[in-house]
Design a protein around this nucleic acid. Structure first.
Length: 312
DNA sequence: GTTGCCGGGTT
DNA sequence: AACCCGGCAAC
């Protein structure tokens, strides 16, 4: 009849272990707020060095890098640099991608016969919310309807560009709004300033990451293939394009696509023109309850996952 | 600097 | 599966 339960003296956590992760009464002297279920966790004692080498990316084999590059380009911009993955040289540099865009007439036909770029059905990741295509005219536009496989960009020096997928138009702009406008006016024949776009434009352009560094690098020194020194003029019909930067463009012939009615589009099936998931507006548990009341957060928030209580 | 959360590890 | 956290992009 006694309670022989010494409350497991909490170990002294060495500073190298307690890197903010351990929630020992955060800062408010609440003393017992943690009690959620059965006494919280014993401060985790995983060896901190278990994470060694989590991202060996730095010196990962070229194969890995190549694979990553291929995957990336496949998932984000299937048409980009429509040339087959057959690098002529092993490229010792370690930056196999973006070896200056080759000037194959990408749009016409033989973009790539391996052609796996053809509307990959959402087999892999299917967002549970809305499986249907986004023609649902939501003015907000930001539909993350098709899974968001956009890999996180390295903040290094990649820049997001937007490429028009319209047949024989390879226009690349630096802003999505500009691209939408371009598509709206040039290809869809709509009013440029039409406020409400039903999002249809999103189908006709794709996003692509451009490594600025290697681009500029390549421009200044490499330039293996015809560098297109004189950039061909843009379409005569287009408005002032907000594209200050536009490194290289495929030799797109001056196509007379002025105001043709919506043609049965060429390379449609490219859905995920989803730039990046914008941060939701809803305040999440952390913000609502504060760090002090962490036990009131939804579990997802507690685990640093997407909040499931305050959905966007 | 803070917040939200992905990716991945641990239990 | 539940739990946890490093790290990073968006603010």
């Amino acid at each position: 009849m006694q309670v022989p339960v010494p409350p497991a003296p909490r170990l002294l956590v060495p500073s190298w272990l307690n890197r903010g992760g351990i929630t020992l009464t955060p800062r408010v002297g609440d003393g017992g707020a943690r009690g959620g279920r059965g006494g919280a966790r014993p401060c985790s004692l995983q060896p901190p060095f278990a994470l060694v080498g989590r991202k060996p990316l730095g010196k990962a084999g070229i194969d890995e890098v190549m694979a990553a590059a291929v995957l990336t380009s496949l998932s984000t911009s299937p048409l980009v640099l429509g040339h087959p993955p057959a690098p002529p040289a092993p490229d010792p540099g370690g930056e196999p991608w973006l070896e200056a865009p080759t000037m194959s007439s990408s749009c016409s036909s033989s973009s790539n016969t391996s052609g796996d770029w053809s509307w990959d059905p959402p087999s892999d990741r299917s967002p549970p919310s809305t499986p249907s295509p986004p023609l649902s005219g939501h003015p907000d536009g930001t539909h993350f309807v098709f899974g968001e496989p956009i890999p996180r960009k390295r903040k290094n020096s990649t820049k997001v560009m937007f490429k028009c997928l319209w047949k024989s138009c390879g226009k690349v702009l630096s802003s999505s709004s500009g691209m939408q406008k371009h598509i709206r006016t040039v290809h869809l024949g709509r009013k440029a300033d039409l406020e409400q776009s039903d999002g249809e434009e999103d189908f006709y352009y794709t996003e692509l990451d451009v490594d600025v560094d290697s681009l500029t690098d390549g421009l200044s020194s490499l330039t293996p293939v015809s560098p297109t020194s004189s950039v061909p003029p843009a379409f005569p019909g287009t408005e002032a394009l907000p594209s200050p930067e536009l490194p290289l463009r495929p030799p797109v012939p001056p196509t007379p696509v002025a105001l043709t009615p919506p043609v049965p589009t060429p390379v449609l099936p490219k859905p995920p023109a989803v730039p990046r998931k914008p941060r939701g507006e809803a305040k999440k548990c952390r913000k609502v309850y504060g760090m002090e009341n962490r036990e009131m957060w939804c579990t997802a928030c507690r685990w640093k996952k997407a909040c499931q209580r305050f959905l966007d």
